[in-house]
Nucleic acid binder design. Structure first.
Length: 210
DNA sequence: ATTTTCAAT
């Protein structure tokens, strides 16, 4: 049992390499996704599962996760006796990259027809989000729109992941600039998710007295 | 100052 559990844990070096939130993440040709699944059956029965995945064979890790979802979340789809959804799940995942445009749109599609699933996404780095009009940025906004909470990982999140998903013998030690990078990325994500329709612009102008 | 990105070779 212990051995099985150990093999589910992420090697220390892999975690540090892939989750490092450096500005120029050269050579990260893999993406890791650490997840926690919570299942609510009755008013107070709560169970718990966790693990990690990485992309394989050209398949992005988010889509791989969706493929595993029915096994991970029994009773997620389908209906109970009286036509009501039977089981509610909440999933939190921590991904080394934010989702690409295609993965975002697939997730949005899935979540729209699965209201009994709540998803919270933490990301270490933002994937192709430099251009103002990038499809990746739009994808993140669509995720927000269907109720996904997307957050940039901070020290406490890396710490939690280290405790939960990593085969470690030592306490988590922050790399140089972890905090600075996290703050920079969080600001960038906020700007991306900031609603910017005309209504809001009008309010902003009013506020500025223009 | 500039650099990368769920590879492809």
């Amino acid at each position: 049992m212990i051995a099985k559990l150990d093999s589910m844990l992420l090697p220390r070096k892999k975690f540090l390499y892939h989750y490092k939130n450096v500005r120029w993440a050269r050579g990260r040709h893999e993406t890791y996704l650490c997840f926690v699944v919570k299942r609510r059956v009755g008013p107070d029965s709560l169970s718990f599962d966790f693990g990690h995945l990485r992309n394989r064979n050209g398949c992005h890790v988010e889509l791989l996760f969706l493929r595993h979802l029915s096994t991970l979340c029994p009773g997620l789809s389908g209906y109970g006796f009286h036509g009501e959804r039977r089981v509610s799940y909440s999933i939190t995942w921590f991904c080394s990259w934010s989702p690409c445009a295609n993965c975002s749109s697939r997730l949005v599609q899935f979540l729209k027809q699965t209201p009994n699933l709540r998803l919270r996404i933490f990301v270490s780095r933002l994937y192709f989000c430099d251009m103002e009009d990038s499809r990746e940025r739009e994808g993140l906004r669509l995720l927000k729109k269907v109720g996904v909470h997307i957050t940039v990982m901070s020290y406490k999140d890396f710490f939690y992941c280290w405790q939960t998903f990593v085969a470690q013998q030592s306490k988590f030690k922050a790399w140089e600039d972890l905090h600075r990078n996290s703050v920079r990325l969080a600001r960038k994500l906020n700007r991306i998710l900031q609603p910017c329709d005309t209504e809001d612009l009008r309010d902003a102008f009013k506020l500025l007295g223009l």
